[in-house]
């Protein structure tokens, strides 16, 4: 599908309709049930003029990029810029940056912003951005208001630049002092235009969307 005057982001084999530029999506589900694979599938560039920048707080940038190439499939998902705040110091490529501690949202955000701008100045018109995942940031921060401001700033920039932002959360993951990840996911959902839920049911991986596809709120099987 070619991009028309209105920027759209296509998700390949994932059964979710293409979304307009400026859309931010929350993806929630179990880490061991395909969350990472779904995240990378949504983030993978579908067109030559798309670029990808991501923040990884779960894994180091090398394994993040391996997972991205694997999930994105042949011909999709070229070089991506990564801000690594996982604490794993192995930096993958020149497009990557490291922040020692996920609690340093100031540095994570500025590095992320700078990488996005570099791609834009290099001629990338359409940018897919992502965060895998928000749980370690919650666990590391003292105040949820910092996390809200961090997310709002990225969703705001995404809308301003006609981009796509995909944010992953495992509601069962450790969020430190903040306890129940289910409540955090339910709250954060309100910062996003759409929500994709993932589950494993009877050996099948299924997704359900809210706010994205009209009438597509039923569980659908997905192959990741």
């Amino acid at each position: 599908m070619s991009l028309s005057a209105t920027t759209q982001y296509d998700f390949g084999d994932v059964p979710i309709d293409a979304v307009d530029g400026g859309t931010s999506i929350l993806v929630s589900g179990p880490r061991d049930g395909g969350l990472e694979e779904l995240f990378h599938s949504l983030l993978a560039a579908a067109e030559d003029d798309e670029g990808v920048v991501a923040i990884t707080s779960d894994d180091g940038s090398r394994s993040f990029e391996r997972a991205h190439r694997s999930a994105a499939g042949l011909g999709r998902g070229g070089d991506i810029g990564v801000v690594d705040c996982s604490g794993d110091s192995g930096i993958g490529t020149d497009d990557d940056a490291a922040v020692a501690d996920p609690s340093d949202l100031t540095a994570v955000n500025m590095q992320f912003s700078a990488l996005c701008d570099e791609l834009r100045y290099d001629g990338t018109e359409h940018l897919r951005t992502g965060l895998l995942s928000v749980s370690p940031l919650c666990a590391a921060c003292e105040d949820m208001r910092d996390v809200y401001r961090f997310v709002q700033n990225i969703t705001s920039r995404t809308r301003r630049n006609d981009g796509l932002f995909v944010c992953a959360i495992d509601p069962e993951a450790d969020t430190g002092q903040f306890g129940d990840g289910q409540n955090i996911a339910a709250g954060l959902e309100k910062a996003f235009a759409g929500h994709v839920e993932l589950r494993r049911e009877g050996g099948r991986t299924e997704i359900r969307t809210d706010g994205l596809d009209a009438g597509a709120d039923e569980w659908q099987r997905v192959t990741l």
Binding site: A97, D104, L105, T106, A107, Q111, A114, D117, R157
Partner: peptide, 28 residues
């Protein structure tokens, strides 16, 4: 908005870990 040519890697955030700003390069 931090509007600067100083790269993010050279910005000392040690005392300011929870500050969210927009970062923009001044010289473009």
């Amino acid at each position: 908005i931090v509007f600067t040519e100083t790269p993010p890697t050279e910005i000392d955030t040690a005392r300011f870990e929870g500050l969210i700003v927009e970062y923009m390069r001044k010289g473009m």
